[in-house]
Amino acid sequence: MQNVEEKVKEVFDEVGAEVTGIRSMVLASLDGLPIVSNVESTEHKNRISAMVSALVALARRMGPDLKTGELEGVSVDFSDGKIFCYNIEDRVIMAVATQKNINLGLLNLIIPGAIEKIKGILSGG
């Protein structure tokens, strides 16, 4: 029987199989602790989880000040890639690092389903 980590990794693999250009995916708690990731180094995984948490917390705090409503996600562009962070029910954060030329339409089509699956897994489903 699969545990939570294995089930979430399976979802990560499904996303990676459907969308070309996914570099890594991380599921972290709101307070920056790693839950599941496919980042190889443990030290790297821990730091990434903490950074994702800080980024999302700051973005969430900007919402009321800029009157942009509740936070749904954060996207960041770099010269060689992009990072997308998704706020999942204010419980956990899923971060996806991608290549620069990722097919955004496809990613946006696939991610909601992945988030629903992760919600189910975290709820014991």
Binding site: L33, A50, A54, R60
Partner: peptide, 21 residues
Amino acid sequence: VVDTDVRSTINIGKEKTTVAM
């Protein structure tokens, strides 16, 4: 104050912790 406190998932001696600033 602009705070970024979230509920801590581990015991740190208090309920919430600052994660950004």
